[in-house]
Design a protein around this nucleic acid. Structure first.
Lengths: 226, 226
DNA sequence: TAGATTGTTAATCGATTAACAATC
DNA sequence: TAGATTGTTAATCGATTAACAATC
């Protein structure tokens, strides 16, 4: 892998490519071109090729990309060929939805432990044997399950505190659903899945909507205005 | 407003500024500088000023931004001074979490009607008087509630079909949670809140994590992905 | 006046896109 | 060979950042 300095936006697009080739083989095409792939995920062909080229040469000139091979490589690049056990802090509505979401996501959301500081929630079964545990169990479970990824779905006021604790206990990546800025050491990977930003920008566009005017505004979370 | 060509990334940052000033007045500061504001939301001061300047001159040189005034302007720019009734299609786990999420979001997620094509779900109470309705009611409810924003939280296989129907019935903005590319006319605003992209990019970074190496990777979906 | 901070211009940086030689 | 398509370079585009005159 020669991913010297892969742009973050490229990393955001790899999942789209992966998802497409993953679904593709059910239908039957041995080979897919960058233009076909691009059309299906809404990205120009040149960009598809550029993105893939950061990681290697997966295609054949004059032919295209062999589907199985591309899927294999994307899986490996993204790390989806392995299992990444995760923990979730916050067993509220969103947290429970995420746990249940596991089944819907093709590549699997491996939530192995759920925590909440509300004694009223502790001990209750969330789904197939996954029980809500008190935060005191964090250290023990992180160690015994070798967890490196934490999901934060607690209210804003306790999010920072939870983040600090997770970092102390050796987590390296945090998926934060609390709509607030978390301060974590720079070596920790933090991804904010901030629905309130989504909601407000959605309202902005709807409020400024003028029928027929303007061109397409298809936004993929980060940016990618068009 | 002189928003001739406001970058999409700027729109994604306005909610962060808004959230900060919204929470700020509880504490007590009459004035906030771009550097203070920037520090609190993780964005350089120059960028804060540039972003705001797309919409007007809200600060005073040598002084800073008056908090109440800034909040007022951001509220107006984002359209949060009005109510934007929305509908939700898909009463699964994620859909129900969104309905319940309403209370947690300061600015309010105005879901006024919920639809599902599963007769087993129809009629059941989701929360305080909001009942799941069959899709046949879409047209009637969109008209009587003047709804312009639709939220799609159905499985991948039916998402496109739902999108087409919403567009036909006059929706202008779609918040799509189904992990798939929707084809909609270019005048429709489409925002993909794709958790599977989030999950996969999270795994990428965690899989490629090397302790201590590299610098900060704080991504706002959108980059954020960003 | 001296210090602070905005709004804006210009320079920098980085990502997207066009173009094309290499290859099947 | 003729047509297709990659991988990559170079040109373009657009966003970020530094710098500073204007202003309090």
């Amino acid at each position: 892998m020669r991913n010297s300095k892969v742009p973050g936006v490229t990393i955001e697009r790899l999942p789209l490519y992966y998802r497409y080739v993953q679904r593709l083989d059910r239908y039957e095409t041995n080979v897919v071109s960058s233009s076909e792939l691009g059309k299906r995920v809404g990205i120009p062909a040149a960009q598809v090729r550029k993105d893939l080229s950061y990681f290697g040469e997966f295609g054949r000139r004059g032919v295209g990309y062999e589907v199985d091979s591309l899927r294999y490589h994307l899986e490996k690049i993204l790390g989806l060929n392995k299992t990444w056990p995760m923990l979730l802090v916050g067993a509220g509505n969103l947290g429970r939805a995420l746990v249940n979401y596991r089944g819907f996501l093709e590549q699997g959301l491996e939530i192995r432990a759920v925590f909440d500081n509300d004694p009223g929630k502790t001990g209750s079964n969330i789904v197939d044997g996954l029980k809500v545990e008190p935060l005191e169990n964090l250290e023990k479970r992180i160690t015994e399950l070798s967890i490196k990824i934490g999901i934060i779905a607690v209210p804003v006021d306790s999010a920072q505190e939870v983040a600090v604790k997770l970092v102390e206990l050796g987590i390296n990546s945090i998926w934060n659903f609390a709509p607030t800025l978390l301060e974590v050491p720079s070596h920790i990977f933090l991804r904010n899945e901030d629905l309130s930003v989504g909601l407000m920008s959605l309202i902005y566009y709807s409020a400024n909507y003028e029928s027929g005017k303007e061109c397409s505004h298809h936004i993929e979370k980060n940016s990618e205005d068009k």
